[in-house]
Amino acid sequence: MKERSENITSKVPAVIALALILLLWWGLCASGMIPSYMLPSPADVVRAFIGDFPNLMYHAKTSLQEAAYGLVIGIGLAFVIATVMDRFRWLDQALSPILVITQTIPTIAIAPLLVLWMGFGMAPKITLVVITTFFPIAVGLLEGYRSVDPDEISLMRAMGADRYQIFRFVKFPSALPHFFSGLKISASYAVVGAVISEWLGGFEGLGVYMTRVKKAYAFDRMFAVIILIVIISLLLMALVDLIRTVSMPWTEVKAEHRNERT
């Protein structure tokens, strides 16, 4: 209970900061310093968000689908590659630099190529999401596999454990916290990745809608889309945290006991 109230007090500064920014935004618009066709006021954006809600939901569904498919494939791919790289040292040495290089390629630059190769359907969008989400998860898993206490592995070997058992009982569980840290980053990348790829062509999705309202100079609706993307990303990150807590009950115990001792 005490912990909960501490949690709330620790969020107060963030709420105040956010409120101040909103106030500043509103003040700039209300005073007429920035014309409303350049920057719509917060009230306009909220109005647009509500008025446009059915439209926004329709497009969000498509973007979310792309993000979800991409993220699931990204997780699977990251798991396979990280696990194989951890198992075979030479493969690790061969692939590590390539993995890093793929991350320096700007997403926005390959998106048009993907559209060129795969058309205007879902495929290029999902591919882009896979490319962006795969890396943080793979790196997290690899780091996790290597964070294992070597004494734990010695003990498992002394108990006669085979490679698979060492993986199952020691390596994989130790990698879980790192996996979830990576997943949290990837979840927020996923939606943004889908939207970016939609900018470059497509029939529906938040990115497509965004380019449409931009061309109509409906900046209030554009802001509404941006805010929706922010909300979706935050919700996804919260979902990852929830799954993490549920699937790793022992971390809660650890935190509780740390508090008790201090």
């Binding site: 206490d149 006669g160 022992w250």
Partner: peptide, 18 residues
């Protein structure tokens, strides 16, 4: 041949997740 003689180390090495 590991697995026949039991081994205990200074660290208890209990796996935190179990």
């Amino acid at each position: 041949h590991p697995g026949k003689i039991s081994y205990m180390l200074q660290k208890d090495l209990l796996l935190e997740h179990m």
